[in-house]
Each structure stands twice: as C-alpha cells, then as structure tokens.
Amino acid sequence: MNLFRLAGDMSHLFSIVLILLKIYTSKSCAGLSMKTQELYTLVFVTRYLDLFYSYVSLYNTVMKLIFLASSFGILWYMRYHKQVKQTYDREQDTFRHYILVVPCAVLALIVNNELSVTEVLWTFSIYLEAVAILPQLVLLQRTKNVDNLTGQYIFFLGAYRALYILNWIYRYWTEPKYRQYLVWAAGLVQTGLYADFFYYYLKSWQAGEKLRLP
C-alpha cells in the first residue's frame, strides 16, 4: 500500500469521525443530508459483501467494518436519537434516491467486468459512490447554512477522492497488472463533483471566513 492510498483512507475515515463528532457534541445533524448518508450505507453494504468471500488484509477488513458500522451509526442518530432527529432538515433534503440508484443499477448491469451477482453489486457500489454526495451538495446549496464541521466533512471526502487518484496514478506506473478503468472513470466523475465545492471552500478559507456559497 502506498502513501497516497493510506492518506486517502485516513481522510475518508477522518471525514466520518468529523460527522460523528458533530452529531455527538452538538446533538444536531443540521445541514447533513440523510439521503447521502443512506446512499453511502448502501454503497458500503453492496461493496463489502466481499467480507464473506474474500480476504485481503487485516487492515482492509477492519476498515470495511468501521465504514459499515459508522455509516449505520450515523443513520441511527439521524433517525432515532431523540434530540438529533429533530434537527434534521427534512423539508430541504428532498433529493430522491431512485434518481441515482436506478441509473447506477442499470449501468452496473450493462458495464461491468463480469455478469455475476457479486460483481454487479460491486460495480453498482462503485458507480453509486461517485454520485452519492449529490443530495448533500444540493442541501448545502439550498440551506446555505454551512457550519464548519459540515464544510470540513465534505472537504475531507473530496480530499479522499483526490488522494485515491494519485494512488491510481502511482499504481499505474508501479504495478503493470493494475488496470481498473471502470473504477478510475467513476473516481474521476466523483472527484469532479467536488470541484465547485472546493473552489468556494478554498476561497472562503483564504478570506478567513466561514464557508459561503453563492
């Protein structure tokens, strides 16, 4: 494992820690999209089915379990915690799941490496992860009320993708067998979705202000 990959994973992990910290300390999930969290949970469940049939390393297994548990934990807080659930912006978070889930499922059935249940589900998770942030970005645009932690959460999620791209470039040159075009294409799309957000995030940061969206 190279440093880009490790830094990417840590960035991903850190973004989740930030969310849990925000929810736990402020007892609020204001500004967070439950739709995005549900989509990520679906991504983890469909991708990490391989926990049952393949083993890569202890590191991978532990990280997969952390991602699964934390995503269910976040959803539990947003849905069932007495105080937290009252802070959820239900009226603003109106993005429909099927708008993303259906096209990703269809695409996974058409463009995949092998037409088997596990492979299609894995491919579906790759496509869905690429677009799962959209409800969160829409909510952000709508509420314009971006607290620091939500801004940092999205920043670290974007950083995770950017670091993975560096990891792929590194692996492309160092591992001749490593060619995952499908994953790379989805990863590029995913990182691209953050470009606009990054622009405003860095601008606000430079000006030493809170994140403001136009």
């Binding site: 390393s57 092998e114 894995w122």
Partner: peptide
C-alpha cells in the same frame, strides 16, 4: 477480467 487480488482498495 479483473482478478480478485486487484480489488484490494476500499
């Protein structure tokens, strides 16, 4: 076709 050992990322 992608070998399983290539799926070592998260």
């Amino acid at each position: 076709r992608i070998a399983k050992e290539l799926k070592d990322e998260l």
